[in-house]
């Protein structure tokens, strides 16, 4: 069982928090880091495969990039909760203040997905959106579960 999804220069991982779970995504662009972090968010719930049967579109607006990241994860959490769905494929477009995202997934199947804990919301704890010297973007925060 893995708590990372690293492939070359993009991927996701969970990081330590006492009561909750940190998610970190990284990639060659802000959009890719955000997409990978959303994948890490889904992996808080299930490690099972998720079919990309249905697409849901979301839009976020915030005053800065870090809050936009939190808003993006909150949008995914809200769609999961309201539609009772899990999403396993994400496409993000962003200018740093506005984000348009496409989430692809399927209704939760309790027997097949065996969902663990429920994400309640993205927090501002350990919140960072940064770029390293190699140009790789990293986006992370703690998710309240």
């Amino acid at each position: 069982m893995s708590a990372t999804g690293q492939v070359s220069r993009f991927g996701w991982e969970h990081f330590h928090h006492d009561a909750d779970i940190g998610v970190r995504g990284w990639g060659r662009s802000i959009a890719e880091a955000f997409e990978q972090a959303a994948m890490g968010l889904t992996r808080i719930v299930t490690f099972s495969p998720i079919a990309a049967d249905t697409q849901v579109d979301v839009e976020c607006h915030q005053s800065d990039l870090e809050l936009l990241f939190v808003d993006w994860l909150d949008a995914v959490i809200c769609e999961m909760a309201t539609r009772k769905m899990l999403f396993g494929c994400f496409a993000v477009g962003t200018d740093g203040r506005t984000l348009k995202g496409a989430l692809s997934g399927e209704p939760i199947d309790v027997a097949r997905h065996a969902p663990a804990c429920e994400p309640k919301g993205a927090t501002l704890t350990a919140l960072k959106v940064t770029r390293d010297g190699d140009g790789i973007w990293c986006a992370q925060c703690v998710i309240d579960v």
């Binding site: 915030q62 005053s63 800065d64 870090e66 809050l67 939190v70 808003d71 909150d74 959490i77 809200c78 909760a81 309640k120 919301g121 993205a122 927090t123 501002l124 704890t125 919140l127 309240d144």
Partner: peptide, 27 residues
């Protein structure tokens, strides 16, 4: 409750400085 918390957390984070509040940490 989760949604109320999420929405107000972001709104408070983005407006605290306008309200003259200096936060040692944004959270």
């Amino acid at each position: 409750g989760h949604q109320i918390g999420s929405e107000f957390l972001k709104e408070m984070a983005s407006t605290a400085s306008q309200a003259g509040i200096i936060l040692p940490d944004r959270e």
